[in-house]
Design a protein around this nucleic acid. Structure first.
Lengths: 150, 150
DNA sequence: TATTGTTATACTCTATAACTATA
DNA sequence: TATAGTTATAGAGTATAACAATA
């Protein structure tokens, strides 16, 4: 029992270390591009959903509208996005990627795929399949806990 | 080939979602205790390593000495730690847990174990063992990449 | 000289509240 | 009335640089 508990704790520690290394690995290089984590997250949403109002971005990122104003200001200043008037709602603005922003995000998607290949490419098909299955189970349990706690 | 790449990407997305949920789950409740992520990280180090100089804490957390001054200031103000003179080096100060700080960290370790049990307790022994083995492999690859990138 | 920690300054991300323009 | 976004204000975490006290 005690031994089992220690093993579980060790596995959680592995996940936490992986969490930290993964964010370090991803955010490394963002600085050279003039990007930060939150700004990249915003670009990621616009890259996948297309031109979006700031209200939509606030909900997607789970932050206040005021915060989006600041992030978009910075991304306009550094040439990643533009603010355009919304075609039908004159209160709203549409945030779109510039050509530079689109280029950077396309490269980032490729890097994402390369990282995935690097992390999992060394596993056998059986081992990889079992890992995905287990991750799904663990994720479901974690989602359940987070949901229940709200 | 293309299908394989998509599968790898999906697994990486699972890991990233787990990363976000895990930090959300852990930081939930810290606010009620009057703690934040970085302050808790500092307490965690002192809890495990015992009374420590600010220099040691800066290295352990990977942040500047200035930053430690601010975190310790806040933790002293809120009653989690004390600053004591170093017995032999009059330049340095030793940061120690107060009784309250120690109580909170002991409870946090118990919560950590409970979370691990909740996440992995539903897996069979075989499945859990395979998961740990795979995590070890993936972590090694990730550590290798981070090391190589420095 | 080198190291420990602080003061000074600045930037990023975050929040709430009050306000303007529009719906 | 309600919504989209901004200005005003504040707090946390982070950094570098200059400095004081001590090693």
């Amino acid at each position: 029992m005690a031994k089992q508990g220690r093993e579980y704790g060790g596995a959680l520690d592995q996940l936490l270390e992986l969490t930290m290394l993964l964010s370090a690995d991803m955010e490394r290089g963002l600085g050279e591009l003039g990007l930060t984590g939150p700004r990249t997250h915003l670009l990621w949403v616009v890259h996948h959903q297309g031109p979006s109002t700031q209200r939509v971005l606030a909900d997607a990122l789970g932050v206040s509208a005021r915060n989006i104003t600041g992030l978009v200001d910075a991304l306009v200043d550094t040439g990643f996005v533009t603010r355009e008037p919304h075609p039908t709602d004159r209160r709203a603005t549409l945030v779109s990627l510039t050509k530079h922003g689109a280029t950077v995000m396309t490269q980032m998607a490729a890097d994402h795929a390369e990282l995935a290949e690097g992390l999992f490419g060394g596993l056998g098909p059986r081992q990889f399949g079992a890992f995905v299955t287990t991750m799904t189970t663990v994720l479901d349990e974690l989602r359940r806990r987070v949901e229940e706690a709200r």
